[in-house]
């Protein structure tokens, strides 16, 4: 049933997207190359640009690939593949998918098996991320001509832009960190009888109840702490040890996987009373909004 996320038709869509990106990239390479020659830029300089850009991109591309696989558990491999190939950015895609699933009472921690949920996530991820494309051509030319020169010269404005972008991004990350510390997810699920069948009221309406489906607790907090520790260690090593400098872009995916490995180890070695501890009892019915 879950094969719908990775059917041949889905692969065809992914290949279509790749063909588009390849065509656009080739178009701009050919046009720029031609103009570069007109300007008298040496062939050697242009070739060096190509080689260094390939080398520069391989490591971050592998880290993006890793995040495709991370999201693939819930969403199948095709959707994250497409979303992280076009516009995609791990943080935004995760936020969009999780927000959509929250509205449907689900979460990215579980595999999506419902087509409607999947379809909603696809639309949410797309609509959320295409916005810059709607106005970019309108403002790009004006910005480059009028503000462009000033911003690149004015360090103060550039610094303010950097800080505001970082603050917005840290705001996003903080919400997820707070949820890993003490959040829970409540979903509406059907009430089942002793035989495990769905129950209906006199009007024939399905009887449902709100239950806690997921909660933060010991394991989520430990994973969070270890992800931070691993990342800080890897970053420090990459900056202090000259031979490791080029591996800096691997630090994020490595820290993430190391923290996930810790979650497995803790779930095996810690007593169940600690490893399974959550702030809110998973499976418990609740009233109101929590």
């Amino acid at each position: 049933m879950e094969q719908f996320k990775e059917s041949p038709a889905m692969y065809a869509i992914a290949f279509g997207v790749i063909a588009f990106i390849a065509a656009q990239s080739f178009f701009f390479i050919v046009k720029s190359w031609k103009h570069g020659k007109e300007l008298g830029i040496k062939r050697e300089t242009l070739m060096n640009t190509v080689t260094s850009s390939i080398l520069f991109s391989i490591a971050p591309a592998i880290s993006i690939l890793v995040t495709v696989f991370v999201l693939a558990k819930a969403l199948g491999v095709i959707l994250p593949w497409i979303r992280l190939t076009v516009i995609g950015n791990l943080a935004y895609e995760t936020v969009a998918a999780e927000t959509a699933l929250n509205n449907l009472g689900g979460s990215l921690s579980k595999e999506i098996t419902d087509m409607k949920q999947f379809s909603t996530v696809v639309w949410a991820m797309t609509i959320g991320s295409v916005f810059p494309l709607t106005f970019l051509p309108i403002v790009c030319k004006k910005l480059q001509k009028k503000i462009g020169g000033a911003v690149s010269k004015d360090e103060r404005t550039a610094k303010m832009g950097d800080i505001l972008s970082a603050a917005a991004f840290i705001g996003i990350i903080s919400a997820f960190i707070a949820r890993a510390i003490n959040g829970c997810t409540i979903a509406t699920e059907p009430v089942l009888d002793a035989a495990g069948n769905e129950m209906f009221d006199e009007a024939g309406k399905k009887i449902t109840q709100k239950i806690i489906t997921e909660s933060s607790g010991a394991l989520s907090i430990l994973t969070l702490i270890f992800a931070i520790i691993f990342m800080l260690i890897f970053m420090t090593l990459c900056r202090k040890v000259k031979a490791l400098e080029k591996f800096e872009s691997f630090a994020m995916p490595l820290a993430m996987f190391a923290a996930m490995a810790c979650a497995v180890i803790f779930s095996k070695i810690l007593p169940p009373s600690i490893a399974d501890f959550t702030w809110y009892e998973v499976g418990k019915a609740v009233t109101g909004n929590g």
């Binding site: 995040t67 991370v70 558990k73 791990l90 943080a91 995760t94 999780e98 990215l108 921690s109 800080i163 970082a166 603050a167 991004f169 840290i170 990350i173 903080s174 997820f176 960190i177 949820r179 890993a180 933060s216 394991l219 989520s220 907090i221 994973t223 969070l224 702490i225 270890f226 992800a227 931070i228 691993f230 990342m231 800080l232 970053m235 630090a251 994020m252 995916p253 820290a255 993430m256 996987f257 923290a259 996930m260 490995a261 979650a263 497995v264 803790f266 779930s267």
Partner: peptide, 22 residues
């Protein structure tokens, strides 16, 4: 346990790189 904790692992690592700077 690993895949149930993808989000804390991801945002912990991502957060650390930002918090180190800011």
């Amino acid at each position: 346990a690993a895949f149930s904790n993808v989000l804390p692992a991801l945002f912990g690592a991502l957060g650390a790189s930002y918090f180190a700077k800011h």
